[in-house]
Amino acid sequence: MAQLYFYYSAMNAGKSTALLQSAYNYQERGMRAEIFTAALDDRFGRGVVASRIGLKAEAHLYTETSDMLSEIEALAAQGKIDCIFIDEAQFLTKHQVKQLTKVVDDMNIPVLAYGLRTDFLGETFEGSHYLLAWADKMVELKTVCHCGRKANFVVRRDGEGNVVTEGAQVQVGGNDSYESMCRKHFTELVW
């Protein structure tokens, strides 16, 4: 029986690495794994999921207007799909997460979604909010704060290294713009 999984964390916990490893495991066994990633994150190239340690794979793109169910149904019409992987799942909409539940429940295809739990202000992203609510299984991937404690928040910094406490929820960036921190250090800087 297929299930909807949500693998979540702060930045730099290895979400993309874990996704790529799992997708490779399916492919290595002759199974078909389809990977999707957010079109707005093109730091490593358009339609590419890449990890900081050098792994990468091509992916289908989705935007906030993508019909995930129709796209997956079209792919399934070309042959059996054994697993769907979603990178940057925080950027999914409520409707898209609902569509992914239909992929699991009606098409019997497992969906493994990987994303951030919260933004730079400690608020959940829309996709993460509904994945946390509707996923069959949730797995926290862990990374560490500079103090050594578990980091579960992300601080946004501007070009001069100052902490940013307002602005658009979505601003794509890497280590140059974001730093993962424990709640104690996050709240000292942001709240």
Rank of each mutant, 00 (worst) to 15 (best):
A89K: 03
T65C: 04
S66W: 05
K56N: 13
S70H: 08
E188T: 14
G79Q: 02
A168E: 15
K98M: 12
D67T: 11
V139F: 13
D87N: 05
T93M: 09
T101C: 08
E160M: 14
A38N: 09
L116P: 10
F186Q: 09
E123W: 13
Y26G: 02
T124H: 12
D176R: 13
M138I: 09
K56H: 13
E88R: 05
A10F: 04
L19C: 03
E160D: 15
G173D: 12
N12I: 02
A38F: 08
A10K: 04
G161F: 08
L75Y: 04
S66I: 06
L92P: 05
L4G: 00
E71S: 08
S70I: 04
V190L: 10
E160N: 15
R43W: 13
V49P: 03
L75Q: 06
V172H: 12
G167Y: 10
L61D: 06
H60C: 05
M31T: 00
L121E: 08
V155D: 11
M1Q: 11
D136Y: 00
L100Q: 07
K184P: 04
A168M: 10
Y7Q: 02
Y5H: 10
L112C: 07
G159R: 15
C147I: 09
N175E: 15
Q96W: 08
E160K: 15
Q78D: 02
A39W: 06
I86S: 01
Q169E: 15
T187Y: 14
N12H: 12
T118M: 13
F120T: 05
A77P: 01
E28T: 03
F36T: 05
T101E: 07
A50T: 03
A74H: 11
Y26K: 08
T118F: 14
M11K: 10
I84N: 01
Y62D: 03
Y130L: 04
Y8M: 04
A2P: 12
T124Q: 14
F120C: 10
L75N: 00
G173E: 13
Y24G: 09
L20E: 04
L112A: 06
Y178F: 12
R46N: 08
H95W: 06
D176A: 15
E73T: 11
A76D: 05
W191K: 15
S9A: 15
A168G: 14
G159V: 09
D87W: 01
D87T: 03
T165Q: 14
A133N: 08
R32W: 00
A50D: 01
D106W: 02
F125A: 09
L189F: 10
Y24K: 10
E71A: 10
D119F: 13
V164M: 13
E58A: 10
A23R: 01
G161E: 11
V104P: 00
G45Q: 09
F120E: 06
T187C: 14
T124R: 13
T17F: 05
K142F: 00
G47C: 03
L131Y: 05
